[in-house]
Amino acid sequence: MDWDDLRIFLAVARAESLSGAGRRLGMDASTVGRRIMRLEQAVGASLFAKTPQGYRLTAEGGRLVAPAEAAEKAAVAVVESTRREEGIGGQLRVGVPDGCANYLMPQVARNLAEAHPRLEIQIVALPRVVNLSKREADMAIAVSPPDTGRLTVQRLSDYRLHLAGHRDYLDRHPPITGLGDLKAHRMIGYIPDMIFDRELDYLSETGVHTAAITSNAVSVQMQAIRAGAGLGIVHDFAIPFVEGLQVILPERISLTRSFWLLRHADDRDSRRLGILADALAHGIRNEIARLEQQVFAPTDRRA
């Protein structure tokens, strides 16, 4: 049985579509489909059933997943052993919450790329937790540790958040001296029914439970705050990127959250991914510390 056919089989099983597998593999969907047909002929069984929701594994296909993943692991080990002295290359896909993706990962990716010139770094910013079981990414950063799944979980770093507004907004609205004053101000936050993790429910800690402008993306919320549209809870590590942003009531509203690094349990023995995970963790920690130090420096941004 051809390993390359098994590789394509796994991509379809994880993406649940020919087009999704093709995008991951750099092939067109018709080629993926032909290769799946060839594999089905080789094993003498249908591996997928086409449904309105996509390509679902048959019973025969489900039985092939474990040996295919074992072959995948063996192939990766061979590549790692032959390239050990050349440095790390290939593709690294990381699933990241969009706040981390926008304000931390560009600098971390720059340093990784400089250390490993042959490495292709893909940053997947999604308003949900990336599904490692379906191999949507090689590793993921989450805002809370998962309760289920065959994963290895590593705490990366705590990070802080504060209420903030742009000085253009603050100059045009009543002063804020206590939590009660916030009721007279426009708030910006997450769309309530699109909060995919309880750790993202920030506004409840301000005493204001509804927002006038909402988005499922941190970057959109930040741009609305930057435009003077209202106040919102922002990551301290994002504040240095926005000139004119001022922290409000830091003694009363101060949140701490954590980032967690998730990897598939089957990858724990991968030397390559272990090195890259350590480098990613080190980079995230350093970048959070560097940026947060700027927030309450002597020339701080408190309102």
Rank of each mutant, 00 (worst) to 15 (best):
I121F: 11
A70W: 06
R155F: 05
S30Y: 08
H185A: 06
I191F: 11
L273D: 01
V32W: 07
N102P: 00
Q223P: 02
L200H: 07
D181Q: 05
L156W: 04
I248S: 02
G178E: 15
D236W: 05
G274K: 05
A212T: 13
S258P: 04
N286T: 10
P67C: 08
R63I: 00
R56M: 11
I248P: 12
H235S: 13
L231N: 02
V94G: 07
R110L: 13
Y55Q: 15
A109P: 05
N111F: 09
Y159W: 01
R128I: 01
A142F: 12
M187A: 04
L273T: 01
S19D: 09
G149R: 08
S19Q: 13
A66K: 15
R7H: 10
M1S: 07
E136A: 00
Y169F: 11
P127L: 09
L119K: 08
G20H: 07
V247I: 11
L92N: 06
A49V: 15
V218Y: 14
A13R: 11
A229R: 15
S215V: 09
R285S: 05
G178H: 12
V234I: 12
S219F: 06
R302H: 03
G228I: 07
G207N: 13
V108I: 12
T51M: 12
E86K: 14
T177A: 07
